[in-house]
């Protein structure tokens, strides 16, 4: 069982409501999204593990059980080519849940015409094994969902 923590504060949003067809269809896996607070944010690791992929706008952490959790900071943010994102760790680093990964600002993402909503995805997970989805207001580090 993996408890996936909220990488930032905000409001829980069902993946189906994310304005991106790949995430909303659950094509990379089930999970939950966060509509972040509108202030500068430090996104933190949702699980313990190794930083397998670290892009400015998204990262994947793989736990010791081999399961990966993706955090994507806003929608279509790859187009920003890293502008406005600051990496606080490095690819390959071992990290604990709750430690900082990337700082960014949802306000400037929204000002660029993009959605700042952040999908948090159990990569290649089975939706039947993702339970306990959070509702409403959440703070960084709160339980977001369970991955059995």
């Amino acid at each position: 069982m993996t408890t996936v923590l909220a990488p930032m504060g905000g409001t829980a949003v069902r993946l189906a409501e994310v304005p991106d067809p790949v995430f909303s269809a659950g094509m990379v896996g089930p999970g939950l999204a966060i509509d972040p607070v509108r202030e500068p944010v430090v996104a933190v690791a949702p699980i313990d593990g190794i930083i397998m992929k670290l892009h400015p706008h998204a990262f994947v952490i793989v736990g010791d059980d081999g399961r990966g959790v993706l955090v994507h900071l806003g929608i279509d943010t790859v187009q920003l080519r890293g502008a406005g994102f600051e990496l606080l760790t490095t690819e390959g680093a071992r990290i604990r849940a709750g430690q900082p990964v990337v700082s960014w600002n949802p306000v400037s993402i929204e000002a660029s015409g993009r959605s700042p909503v952040c999908p948090v995805v159990a990569l290649d997970g089975d939706a039947d094994y993702v339970t306990g989805l959070a509702h409403g207001r959440i703070d960084a580090g709160d339980d977001l969902f369970e991955w059995a």
Binding site: P21, V22, M52, K53, H55, V60, G68, L70
Partner: peptide, 20 residues
């Protein structure tokens, strides 16, 4: 690929985190 989304001449091929 996990899936393919096409819109006009833009085709998105979903391959998982090994995309790069």
């Amino acid at each position: 690929a996990h899936g393919v989304m096409a819109a006009g001449n833009i085709v998105q091929v979903v391959v998982g985190p090994e995309a790069d």
